[in-house]
């Protein structure tokens, strides 16, 4: 992988230049669709952008210096992790990747949630702490099926390279694994019915309660980037063919991600918030079940052949 390619991936596509507007687009799409489904008109498309600009222009509230390092730093780390994760996605057929980039991607995808837990504790507010605890518990529950699904994918493709997995033949393992990852999306994105850690009616905005101005803007952006990265991951892993042209890949990737955003929004609009135990039970039962089947099929490919 040449340096130019790395910079291109990080800063232009699918990195900064592409990801940030897409993040705003997705945040808007989510709000707009929710509003339309509730019989409202909803915000105009530039809303997340102006929210961001407005928050950036807010004056900072003074805090003790040690806290402020944490409170400035964590959202920034979260944003950069989102960008890095995106840069690794094998969107086009000519991207090469490197051995072990799958592991790095999984790590980067976990950073925003980790930052959020740290932020909750660093903010020294009781609501931030409860939110952080919930986030931590949830991350354990959803990561098990999520990681099992990733392992199943890697095992069946016999590679830790994302490109190889994306190019591996379609089959039961891949379908089940991608389905499990899909199942984990609502909780990773903290939307209904799993919006437990940022449940406004219980603990204000959870870990982000104490953040204001530019820091909050960064959190919003990091959240948007999570949307882009996670939907992108599902599309990359789930899509079994590449058009061969760069433009074609780009178009398919973007449009499928947006469709996924809409589907997730529909789910979020039609449900109430579950409690953390209920959410955990759901993931232990269904998420684990699905991913374990995927893993078994991946380890013993004969079973799949036998079924066929």
């Amino acid at each position: 992988m040449s340096w130019e390619k790395v910079f291109f991936a990080l800063l232009i596509f699918p990195g900064l230049l592409y990801a940030v507007p897409t993040a705003w687009l997705m945040l808007w799409l989510e709000r707009k669709f929710r509003a339309r489904m509730q019989g409202r008109i909803g915000p105009p498309f530039y809303q997340p952008f102006f929210d961001f600009v407005k928050l950036m222009a807010k004056r900072r509230v003074l805090r003790p210096s040690f806290d402020s390092i944490f409170m400035m730093g964590l959202p920034l780390v979260s944003v950069s992790a989102g960008l890095l994760a995106l840069a690794l996605l094998p969107i086009s057929s000519d991207s090469r990747g490197f051995a072990g980039d799958l592991v790095l991607l999984v790590a980067f995808l976990e950073v925003p949630s980790l930052c959020s837990v740290l932020a909750g504790f660093a903010s020294r507010s009781i609501f931030g702490q409860v939110g952080a605890t919930r986030e931590a518990i949830l991350s354990i529950t959803y990561n098990l099926p999520f990681l099992t699904a990733i392992v199943a994918l890697a095992y069946s493709a016999q590679s830790l390279r994302l490109v190889d997995i994306a190019a591996s033949p379609a089959g039961g393992v891949r379908a089940l694994a991608v389905l499990t990852i899909c199942l984990c999306l609502p909780v990773k994105l903290r939307i209904n019915p799993f919006s437990v850690s940022n449940a406004e009616q219980e603990i204000y905005s959870g870990p982000a309660t104490e953040f204001s101005g530019p820091q909050l803007a960064m959190w919003e952006l990091a959240h948007g980037l999570e949307w882009v990265a996670l939907t992108g991951l599902v599309v990359c892993l789930g899509l079994t063919f590449r058009t061969g042209t760069w433009i074609g890949d780009f178009a398919i990737y973007t449009s499928l991600s947006l469709v996924l955003v809409i589907l997730l929004t529909i789910l979020a609009t039609g449900t109430a918030r579950l409690k953390i135990q209920q959410a955990a039970r759901f993931y232990w039962r269904w998420g684990m079940g699905l991913s374990l089947v995927a893993l078994i099929l991946g380890v013993f490919p004969d079973i799949e052949r036998f079924i066929r």
């Binding site: 915000p43 104490e210 953040f211």
Partner: peptide, 19 residues
């Protein structure tokens, strides 16, 4: 609520005064 829907003007009700 739907009839007045202030969100179309970008107005949002937030839970924390810091926001």
């Amino acid at each position: 609520a739907p009839r007045y829907d202030v969100e179309q003007a970008g107005i949002l009700l937030v839970g924390s005064p810091r926001h």
